[in-house]
Amino acid sequence: MDDTAVNDIARFFRRLQWALVALAVLWLVWLMGPVLTPFVVAALLGWLGDPLVDRLQRAGRSRNTAVVLVFALMALLLALALLILVPTLQRQIATLVHSLPNYRDWFVDTAIPWLEQRTRLDLSTWLNPEYLIEQLRVHWERAGGVATTALGYLSRSGFAVFAMVANVVLIPVLTFFFLRDWDVFVERVASLVPRDHLGTASRLAKESSDMLGGFLRGQFTVMLILGAMYGFGLWAIGIDLGLLIGIVAGLLTFVPYLGPASGVIFGVIAALVQHGDWKHVAGVLAVFGIGQVIESYWLTPKLVGDRIGLHPVAVIFAVLAGGQLFGFLGMLLALPVAAVANVLLRYAHARYTQSRLYAGQSPAPGVGAERVSGGGIIVPADSDDEGEGKA
């Protein structure tokens, strides 16, 4: 067996070894998801706050002082959000509970007959509350068994509730330490990278961090602005549940097209139930139409742009796949992993377009020899471009 075959076998076993290590890491992440969740949340907060800490350090403050200032700012913003949102949401939910009979009557007396008239389907039997209650009574024994099982699970999950509270308490403590020692963690990880690949690894890591950081900060700002715009706009035209609908639509803006679509549906239903005229429906459509114009032509291009480089379908798939595989932890890690994967795929594509496999070794019959330029463009070999001679 020659040296080439031995090297190929050794390379295969090294790759197999790394694949097994990756699978073992994923298995451990899946097993330790509940334990790792507060660490991941704190790491994301520390990563988002580290640029501001570095900026304060460059302004002349010590690392500890900068960390305390940034941590206090983050805690203040969280406290203000809770002080503003919690009472507002409490009032809006109380209004919703008080209005539920009106929504039920509108659904039974107006919505169902309207749908039946246009679809010619007998929906009143299936959607009638009395029929649903009767079906529940008929199957009460089975429902009672399910309820008993659920209550038994809840009674056995007291430790899980305690663990969740402990995680919430841990997050600010861990965030402070991640803010303080973020640069130390980065240096220790960089020290493990082989020296021959340190430059490439550093460049790819910086691209991933810049891309994801810009996307998250911009998207979060867009969500806040749109939630406030939708909420106050619906409140201004007289929708009692306008603030709640606006907040929900703003949060769902993270999923492309879901936020405005859900806001329009809920807003139109609220306008029809509360006022019953098309003037308020037109007002709801105007609020979301203006919001979408501002978001499409100013907010998203200005604050988000194309920083993550992923199609909206890929973003949705990443979040759903992460949640399906690793639960809430997977949803937290979905976008960071997707951003890193996107940067690595770009790097792999650039390497591939400059490889011999892509360029080929022999010209096609009747065509002059061609080769690949530094930018991945195929040019004739006899081109007199000076830059190509250096590529």
Rank of each mutant, 00 (worst) to 15 (best):
T175I: 01
G218V: 00
V186H: 01
V165R: 03
L179D: 01
L154H: 07
A160N: 09
G158E: 03
R217K: 05
W140Q: 14
R195S: 11
G145N: 09
F178N: 03
P194N: 00
V189M: 05
S157K: 12
A166D: 06
L212P: 01
S208L: 05
G213T: 00
A201C: 07
F220H: 00
T148D: 10
L154R: 11
Q135Y: 07
R156Y: 12
L204K: 02
P194Y: 04
L132W: 11
A160K: 06
E187M: 11
F176I: 03
L132I: 14
G144E: 12
E130H: 10
L170D: 04
S155N: 14
A147E: 09
E134Q: 09
L151Y: 13
A190V: 09
Q219G: 01
R217M: 01
L174M: 06
D183L: 06
A143R: 09
G158A: 04
P172N: 02
A147K: 09
V169K: 02
Q135C: 04
A201S: 12
G214A: 01
R137L: 07
Q135A: 07
R195Q: 10
V165F: 10
Q219L: 05
F176H: 02
R195G: 06
L174R: 01
A190K: 11
G213A: 00
V193N: 00
F162N: 04
F176D: 00
L132Q: 09
F178K: 02
W140T: 09
L170G: 06
A166Q: 11
A143H: 13
S202R: 15
V165E: 01
V138W: 01
F215I: 03
H197W: 12
F159S: 08
R156L: 14
G214H: 02
V165Q: 02
A166I: 07
L216T: 03
L198R: 15
K206G: 12
Q219A: 06
P129R: 03
G158D: 02
W140Y: 14
